[in-house]
Write a protein that binds this DNA or RNA. Structure first.
Lengths: 147, 147
DNA sequence: CTACAAGCTCAACTTAACTTGAGGTCAAGC
DNA sequence: GCTTGACCTCAAGTTAAGTTGAGCTTGTAG
């Protein structure tokens, strides 16, 4: 059987589970690329499926399209990305993932105590403090133990 | 200084690190409540600080304001929430957190293999499959024929 | 008793990530 | 050759979670 040739936008949508409009959108944002037929219709290479998969996975982890675009931009323009290319990408995100996991763990482990503790000094709460804008701009009185 | 009984919106903003506009917004969304002075200015009880803290924490974990509102709605209207009340809430969110952590772990552990594996059958990918609409509607024919 | 910081309301604007719609083209089956 | 469904472009709409600004009122320090 002949290798599957190019995919239409509809086929990519069907296979990736992403709406056609979203694919258009990704393309406009430079996350995926296509070339056009004589009749101006999009045709995608098979690697677009992988790209889209990566995009969705990354999104699920909370990476914004802009960040994803930046990461994907590092992939070779001309050729099909190698295992090496993808691997590099995944390694970078893996670190971010690790951070995120640790953050959530910390949160989870502190959650019950911190929410349920009944303490009145919320501004001393270790959970709260981690992104406390006040800590940065603090005028003094509100200033707490630096982490 | 005498113990502060009621807080103005500005004081809440200062102590919670949340913008006044955001507090207005939360109030409009029913996440927090206030009563008004004769001059129509908001006055908050001290428990609002806790509420706001909980809101921000929950948001950070990826819970939407709508969901937070629903959870907070379960808190007693009339009285200051007890430790019990908060604890119940945190326990519920804790479960969600656990799920999220596990999901991320799975993602992390599969990421390098799955993104970097070089395999061509993306629709068989364990990562992708977890939310694959196609897998549910799949006719079987769409099963990847291609390399 | 007055200046002016803080509050108030309401509407409009913002960003992300898409979706929907209008109006028109292309391609494949009968 | 027609009909139908998939495509195309571009503009506008949508949701979340707020922010910003205008115009007006309150509250408090000096």
């Amino acid at each position: 059987m002949a290798p599957v040739r190019e995919l239409t936008v509809g086929q990519v949508a069907a296979r990736s589970g992403v709406a056609v409009s979203a694919l258009h959108f990704y393309e406009a944002r430079g996350l995926i690329h296509s070339h056009r037929t004589a009749g101006n219709q999009r045709r995608y290479g098979r690697d677009v499926l992988r790209r889209v998969a990566v995009i969705r996975i990354a999104q699920e982890v909370g990476i914004s399209l802009a960040e994803i675009a930046a990461a994907l931009a590092a992939l070779p323009e001309g050729r099909t990305p190698t295992r090496e290319d993808w691997s590099q990408l995944s390694t970078a995100w893996r670190d971010g993932l690790d951070d995120k996991i640790n953050q959530l763990k910390k949160l989870r482990d502190g959650l019950t105590d911190c929410i349920g503790c009944g303490c009145m000094s919320i501004d001393k709460c270790p959970l709260r403090n981690k992104d406390d804008r006040l800590a940065r701009e603090g005028t003094g009185a509100r200033r707490l133990v630096a982490r």
